[in-house]
Design a protein around this nucleic acid. Structure first.
Lengths: 150, 150
DNA sequence: ACTGTATTTGACGTTTACGTCAACGGAACG
DNA sequence: CGTTCCGTTGACGTAAACGTCAAATACAGT
């Protein structure tokens, strides 16, 4: 048989590192933060399907700039199972706030993409018509200082 | 006349703090990183329209989890003016990579929003039909350990 | 001139999210 | 049985992005 502790449903730490492109240190760190809870075979960690699902969510949260603490809250959402109704309501409140945050980010993101595309088209136009002397492209509008005596 | 150094087009550091909800330390820090370049009236900083436009972009970049160094690169995009064609091409390459990154984030974000909404609907359904015994909601699929001898 | 408040420049502290050793443990191989 | 890998647990280091505190300066109003 293959010597390592991995079964059909569990993975060793190295397999996890390869599958998700993270370091072992990172996985141990997440465990210390209670984001993951691999089982043990002797002293060694074995990561379950649940750990993999959670890690996937952690990595996505990270790409959005959530802190690990915030991600921990979100993870609990996927992990209720049998909480009381009160606890469930509270969780839904947190989820609702996070959803609003995500949708706000989405609007920002759309705006950023549109502006970046516009900038790039401007740049490409300059490369195309080499001699073109366009006016220095306008910067987005920003708050003006308020006249105190108005 | 109002005593401070602010004119119709410039703002003092405090006005900036109020307008953008950042601390003075942050503004000075960004200046030290060459992200902002306020002019001086004596020793005091006066932030121009350009500084405000750049700060707006910095803050948006931050919300997406870009580092300040990355944001610096993006800012240069909005700031070429008269670079050589080679430099402009290089800048467009960087921009293109950032655009791809932004669009990837957008896809991730859409997925995250969809999953979060689904979770919330599941939770609300449990609150509604109090006695409902649904199967423990499925977790998203993840990589399985590969059978080494296959 | 005096006082008070806003600003400036260092310098050092802090938090987050890991990286980097060091020292040890066990198991698999020859 | 010795060696060679992983793997584990601390302990300490680090980079980014500021916070905090101190000491000095600069104006503004009286």
């Amino acid at each position: 048989m293959n010597g390592d502790g991995a079964t059909a449903d569990t993975m060793t730490i190295r397999q996890m590192c390869d599958a998700f492109d993270v370091t072992a240190r990172t996985l141990r760190f997440y465990e210390s933060k209670d984001l993951l809870a691999p089982i043990r075979s002797g002293t060694r960690r074995l990561f379950t399907r649940r750990d993999r699902a959670r890690l996937k969510l952690i990595l996505r949260g990270r790409r959005f700039g959530f802190t690990l603490d915030e991600i921990g809250e979100l993870l609990d959402l996927y992990d209720i199972g049998d909480g009381q109704a009160t606890q469930l309501r509270r969780t839904l409140e947190i989820a609702s706030a996070h959803l609003a945050s995500l949708e706000h980010r989405r609007r920002d993101l759309d705006e950023a993409i549109a502006e970046l595309k516009a900038q790039m088209e401007w740049g490409e136009a300059r490369l195309g018509r080499k001699g073109a002397r366009a006016a220095p492209r306008p910067l987005p509008e920003t708050p003006r200082p308020a006249a105190p005596g108005a």
